[in-house]
Amino acid sequence: MTGRTGLEAVRIQHVLPYDPRQPGGVQTHTYALSRALSDVGHDSTIFAPSRPLRVSLGGTRADLALHPLDALALRRFLRLPHDLLHIQEPLLPAVGPLALLHPSPVPTVVTLHSAEVVAHRFYRWTAPLTRRLMRRADALICASPISHQTAVPAISYEPRIIYPCLDLAAFSAVTRNPEPNTILFVGRDEPRKGLTLLLRAIRQLPQAKLVIAGPVRHSTRQLADGRTTFLGPIPHEEIPLLMKSATCAAFPASGGEALGLVLIESMAAGVPLVASDIPGYRIATNNGDAALLSPPNDPDALAQNLLRLLDDAQLRERLANRGREAANRFDSHVIARQHLDLYQSLVPA
């Protein structure tokens, strides 16, 4: 059978270690990639945990496939007919290593996403084991140059860099109607995401209103005043509506970001950005051309850039146009084509 790309259709199995019901970049990427592959005639299916257990990884909370019943379900999944196996985050202590160790008659591709310091330390401490495990893969992808730097201790050959992807259609279709002086933050309240820094910066902007979409700790809420609205966790499909009304968005992470998918979604929706000047965000914003970048952990610089955006409509329009262009590089169909080139090189004709 031939896919709509004109190439032989491929049956691809994806293994995802995270709970797909929880927000996260790896989940977003995996499902967007799978849909894009299916759109062009390939058979793409995903294994994800049905009984995830919550763990803390370097300050980031994650729901992972650690339950024994998930391991049994994975074995059944891998027995289904397929031409290629693609494992996301194969070195997490979850289903990834089990999938790599499972005897497989088909090529195996793995993608490393993490850019966090704790991951680099883990890879360094376990290098003999992780290098041996990674040799079972036929091809290695890193989700960005930052992920590659993080993973160096765990790998023994150069990876291919293929960025994560997003289904940007709903964001690109947003008709903007921003409310004056409204700043949007979308994300989890983890120390590296910089929400407390943003709340400190907002104190310097008496005209600004802040809208926060995502779970927020009680201690963080105590830092806010009456100009801050806490929406709590928002279903992913409702986020484009939030972006419709934001004057701008702020992403003040201190590090640990391989790319920043929520930045890309915001740019696709035409929302001008202020973000931290960290490597992953530089990549996402086309080396800072599509956003105002502030030094990380500097509330004064963050406040100054937010004030510039709130006060300058022409700057907002210029950044919005550049942002839409920058976001298109990460559209799921663009990135799926890059994956297909790799898959086709591995699957026998």
Rank of each mutant, 00 (worst) to 15 (best):
A170C: 03
D167Y: 04
F185V: 03
A169K: 10
L184P: 04
P178N: 13
C165A: 04
A154Q: 07
P180D: 04
A170Q: 02
P159A: 06
N177L: 06
F185T: 05
N181H: 14
R188D: 04
L168I: 07
I162E: 01
N177K: 09
R176Q: 01
V186C: 02
A173F: 01
N181C: 10
G187K: 13
F185A: 02
N177T: 09
P180G: 06
A173L: 06
I183N: 05
L166Y: 00
A173H: 05
L168K: 05
A173E: 06
C165I: 03
V186I: 02
A154D: 05
L166I: 07
C165V: 00
I162D: 01
T175L: 12
E158L: 12
L166R: 09
L168N: 03
F185N: 00
F171Y: 10
N177C: 11
P178Q: 10
P153D: 11
G187N: 02
F171Q: 10
A154P: 11
L166N: 04
V174D: 02
I162H: 05
L184Y: 09
I155M: 11
R188E: 08
C165L: 08
D189G: 06
D189R: 06
F171L: 06
E158S: 14
S172C: 13
D189L: 08
N177V: 09
G187S: 07
R188F: 15
C165S: 09
T182I: 03
G187W: 05
A169W: 05
D189W: 01
D189F: 01
